[in-house]
């Protein structure tokens, strides 16, 4: 069983317009690496230098990974990951 990743509107051009994709891995960073293999270009939109971009939020189920172990946060089969860019501005 794999992990479901919810893809935000802005990244859907990279996932052939799919809202949800499946990936396998044991932590968030591995999931992102696997997404990058399947959907090239996604990684740089989400992170740089091992850090998630300031205005990108990543959740494992209901938990913001900033308040857990960041990209090292563990995931298991059946979990869902949500990538959600902040709605923000000046």
């Amino acid at each position: 069983m794999s992990i479901t990743v919810n893809i935000p509107t802005i990244l859907r051009p990279l996932t052939q317009d799919q809202k949800r994709v499946e990936a396998t891995g044991s932590k968030v960073s591995e999931i992102i690496e696997q997404l990058e293999q399947q959907y090239a270009g996604i990684k740089e939109k989400v992170m740089a230098d091992d850090q998630v971009h300031r205005f990108i939020n990543i959740y494992v189920n209901d938990d913001d990974i900033r308040f857990t172990e960041g990209l090292e946060t563990a995931v298991k089969a059946g979990d869902s990951i949500t990538i959600l860019p902040s709605v923000a501005g000046g």
């Binding site: 919810n6 913001d64 949500t82 959600l84 902040s86 709605v87």
Partner: peptide
């Protein structure tokens, strides 16, 4: 007064509901 950002938890809930 010069910046806004949707509160992250509320943002997640609202986006899930829309979905």
């Amino acid at each position: 007064e010069t910046f806004f950002e949707f509160a992250p938890k509320q943002h997640l809930q609202v986006w899930r509901k829309m979905d």
